[in-house]
Design a protein around this nucleic acid. Structure first.
Lengths: 334, 334
DNA sequence: CTGAAAGCGCTAACAA
DNA sequence: TTGTTAGCGCTTTCAG
């Protein structure tokens, strides 16, 4: 390959100034048709494309938004990524997905790097471990919005669900369909402000509202959001409690639960009902199909993006909070 | 936030030249301990982080590798992305995931942009529509490797499977377990060099090898790799053929097939066996669990990355080809 | 081992 | 409407 072409190569070829080439390429200022044509011809003839770095260094913007998620092979994040990417395109932004692997230190360093580097115009961050307070400590100057995690202190833009209410909806549904021993998988005692704690809170309040006693043998904590956790936890609960329903705080965990129940020959929903959370695509195709809390993921993505775009335009606006509606999608498993 | 700090701010503060700060930050040249300390102190005190654009513009490298995939919410790609990301970190590269949405025009423009922009040091590209020939037409100068797709002409680095052999393995397995009416879902007649066509070829050869007649009522084409396709195609085949096995060219399609069979009350594997392809995590947790062709995805990712790193170092080396081993993972569905 | 100075390719004041 | 020119912040010859 020969040397990279520059703006001035084009300018020379088209016999205009670099300024004019820049204007044509960016479509900024009205350029006379004659010159525009000459420039466009030169660009095509020579096969010129602008240098991203130089342009960004000079203009101070990149057109890039980072989506920082724990694990892209968790379908919930993958689906979100898909939506955000598609919504960003018409806004003139490209989405780059950045995986933290959900480990505390790694999440911290990823967000630090992303907010300090000048690579991104903005960031959409879905934290797993980091609390808003910890986040504030490491964050640089790049604007970002928080996804999912409930920010106690309203210091950042934030889009999430009403986790407590949604969990209550699940309990109400299970109660209404005759379930009295409702297990819950996914509590996370280590992170006070986490969505998991909120969901567990909603579960407890739901039990109370329906006069059901809390039974610790029906509860398993969350060490991950993966299928295997649901599988293991379900076997455990099956042995020590005697659930007639299992409420999982994520669909992936619920899928693991379905597998565990099948392996034990327990019929779903006849003997045990299962409800998940997230409404990932997989939930519509499992056997049996999975009842789940379905957040409006598209609205989630769109709102996060719109908050971010606004903040990029004016970093000084006060932080906003938006609670995305959800519905309980009832399928075969309950 | 105040103005961004620059190298020379640090230099002034530490009372050294910009050159020395650069050396310290990059750890290039041996710097005296005394100066290093002064510089590091200044960096920490002021909270300096280098400007990515300026650095990349000057040095000509970014440390960024793009992973260009059709749809990140297809688990196969998500799992691959996870692996590539983790393998790249120790090599000093960050992976940015770029989704094309698998549409022809979009795939073309994404790869054109990615290879022409100076943003990435290299690209790993998993094409869905683009043939190597078409690819050659739009590609810029950024080095890239191809994933999955079989490149007819050996003009690019390429890592893939032996699709024909693997498909043959599936047919052999089904035949050995007594299946005689083996359906296949996922053929793609529109793209001669696609993996789908290779798999179908392997299927045909497998039938022949075992003396089974080809029956067009047992075949459904691939318009996508999604679950819904598997669902629809299975119902269709169930109606017109009378399969005792369904071979799906992707796990996602197989998951859809399982759902369709369950909805019709067809028992798997007693009445109909199902085999998929990819060994995504979901395949270990479906009901029943799914038999599948399991490529060594980690080796796939590692080889692609290593090919790419070599090519970045020396763009002139001849293109290489690597065929990743696979195994047939037999689970409950067959 | 460190300093001075040039320049990566582009955009945007400022002029004309 | 177009040309001239000065940097964006960094790395890197070239001297010292």
């Amino acid at each position: 390959m020969s040397k990279r072409l520059t703006l001035s190569d084009i300018a020379r070829r088209a016999e205009v100034s670099p300024r004019t080439v820049s204007n044509v390429v960016n479509g900024y200022v009205p350029v006379s048709d004659k010159l525009r044509e000459r420039v466009e011809k030169a660009v095509n003839d020579l096969g010129y494309s602008p240098n991203f770095m130089a342009r960004s260094l000079r203009s101070g913007r990149t057109g890039l938004i980072a989506l920082v998620v724990p694990e892209i092979d968790v379908p919930y994040f993958a689906e979100l990524a898909r939506m955000v990417t598609e919504l960003a395109e018409p806004l003139g932004y490209r989405i780059m997905i950045d995986q933290t692997s959900g480990v505390d230190a790694s999440e911290r360093s990823h967000i630090a790097r992303a907010t300090q580097s000048t690579l991104f115009d903005g960031i959409i961050f879905s934290p797993l471990q980091l609390s808003p307070t910890e986040l504030a400590e490491v964050a640089g100057t790049t604007p970002f919005v928080l996804l999912g995690e409930h920010s106690q202190e309203q210091s950042f833009d934030h889009v999430g669900l009403d986790n407590v209410a949604a969990a209550g909806d699940v309990v109400a549904h299970l109660y209404a369909t005759g379930r009295r021993r409702i297990a819950a998988i996914g509590q996370n005692v280590n992170r006070p402000a986490s969505t998991e704690v909120q969901r567990f809170d909603g579960y407890l309040r739901g039990l109370e509202r329906h006069g059901l006693a809390f039974d610790p043998t029906l509860v398993a904590p969350s060490t991950s959001r993966h299928r295997q956790l649901g599988y293991d936890a379900t076997l455990e609960i099956l042995d020590k409690g005697r659930p007639d329903a299992i409420f999982c705080f994520s669909d992936l965990v619920a899928i693991g639960a379905l597998r565990a129940l099948a392996s034990r020959g327990v019929r779903v929903p006849e003997e045990v009902a299962v409800v998940g959370w997230d409404d990932i695509q997989e939930a519509s195709f499992s056997n049996p199909t999975l009842s789940t809390i379905a957040p409006d993921k598209n609205l989630l993505a769109a709102t996060a993006l719109s908050f971010l775009v606004d903040r990029i335009a004016d970093p000084a606006i006060p932080p906003r909070e938006f609670v995305v509606p959800h519905r309980l999608e009832i399928r075969q498993s309950s």
